[in-house]
Nucleic acid binder design. Structure first.
Length: 363
DNA sequence: CACACGTGGAT
DNA sequence: TATCCAAGTGT
């Protein structure tokens, strides 16, 4: 209890103000709010992790069209799941979702264990906040969430000092979230908290003029809305360089390699990648001694959250490979297989399509 | 606990 | 254009 900052309102008053605002201004027609089944709520919550609503909607619709039920997802090959995840980012979410679906089939008779917060959180990809959201949204039972929107709103209302990523700060915010969460209208309350943060108590431009808490908000009283929550400590962005081999056969197909299951673009298919020219040369000697190297194409870069990658495409031609194994395949731009591709690779392959067309026309 | 993990929108 | 960072989790 001593962990919790002084609340600005009694829980009942807080809930009443928030829900009145939500009834008027909340979002009531998002795709996952129709047919609010545990499965649909789960998929939406995973896609929405660190990802904005507008970005998620088309991915969610495609995913549901292909995998209408949990069993459909469990039966699918991982490649197809990652194919539908391509462009959404944080691909561990897709791998974990797929793995969790199979786990639910085997250990929970095909039903998400929404009766137990702990059982949910034991599934890969579901943490404390997502477990709370799934329970609250799909069953209406009381469960607490603490996502970015809730963190920002509560930090402002109570002028909570410190970056919310710090465990001590996060504990205070959990205590506040716990304090305000009602037993009734839980579905609406959790949605309301997220809508409030996303559309009114926004990061850069909070709309205090229409805020139902403006009269009690500590940050607003101090005129310091923008100071809360405190920003993450920044650090320099390192740059890494790599070469991507664009090895094409006589039919214009491109050799792809499946990336390791963990790490960057884990489980996705990409161009063979080499940190230095030496490794590239050795690889070619072993796998494609007959390959003819063309001059490298201009480098381009891709910026990630934690580093910047400079990519030099290295085009080459070869008649074929004797054996490409399980973790390689020939990618035909005219008839692309349904597998996951990293964004820069997808863009690079798309730029190759005219070549493939010209090659097939010439043949 | 600090860091890795992606992409696109907002300012 | 550069920077920040969004419905977090896993290691």
């Amino acid at each position: 209890m001593s962990e919790m900052p002084a609340p600005v309102l009694e829980p009942e008053a807080f809930q009443q103000r928030l829900l009145a605002w939500f009834d008027q201004h909340g979002r009531h027609d998002l795709p996952w709010q129709r047919q609010r089944t545990p499965y649909r709520v789960w998929v939406s919550e995973i896609m929405l992790q660190q990802t904005q609503v507008a970005t998620v909607i088309p991915y969610f619709e495609r995913f549901m069209a292909r995998f209408p039920a949990l069993g459909d997802l469990a039966e699918a090959p991982q490649d197809e799941v990652l194919h539908l995840w391509t462009g959404l980012g944080y691909y561990a979410r897709g791998r974990n979702l797929h793995r969790a679906a199979r786990e639910v089939m085997m250990e929970h008779a095909g039903e998400l264990p929404v009766a137990s917060l702990d059982a949910l959180a034991a599934l890969p990809g579901i943490g404390r906040s997502t477990a709370g959201a799934i329970v609250a949204q799909s069953t209406g039972r009381r469960a607490v969430i603490l996502d970015g929107n809730v963190k920002r709103s509560l930090a402002r209302l109570h002028a909570v000092e410190g970056w919310p990523g710090r465990p001590a700060v996060e504990r205070r915010l959990w205590a506040l979230a716990e304090h305000y969460t009602p037993h009734a209208r839980v579905v609406d309350y959790t949605q309301a908290m997220m809508d409030f943060g996303a559309t009114l108590c926004r990061r850069g431009t909070p709309d205090c003029g229409h805020c139902p808490f403006a009269d009690v908000c500590v940050a607003h009283a101090r005129g310091e809305e923008r100071r809360f929550p405190e920003a993450k400590p920044k650090k320099a962005l390192p740059t890494r360089t790599t070469r991507m081999l664009v090895l094409r056969d006589a039919e214009g197909r491109v050799l792809l390699e499946q990336r390791p299951a963990r790490g960057l673009w884990g489980g996705l298919w990409g161009l063979p990648q080499f940190d230095d020219p030496e490794t590239l040369r050795t690889w070619l000697e072993v796998h494609a001694p007959a390959a003819e190297l063309d001059p490298a194409w201009p480098a381009f870069h891709h910026t990630f959250s934690h580093f910047r990658l400079e990519i030099t495409p290295q085009p080459a031609r070869v008649d074929g490979l004797d054996s490409i194994g399980e973790t390689r395949c020939w990618y035909d731009p005219a008839n692309p297989p349904r597998l996951g591709l990293a964004a820069p690779v997808k863009a690079l392959l798309a730029s190759l399509a005219p070549f493939a067309l010209a090659a097939s026309e010439g043949a």
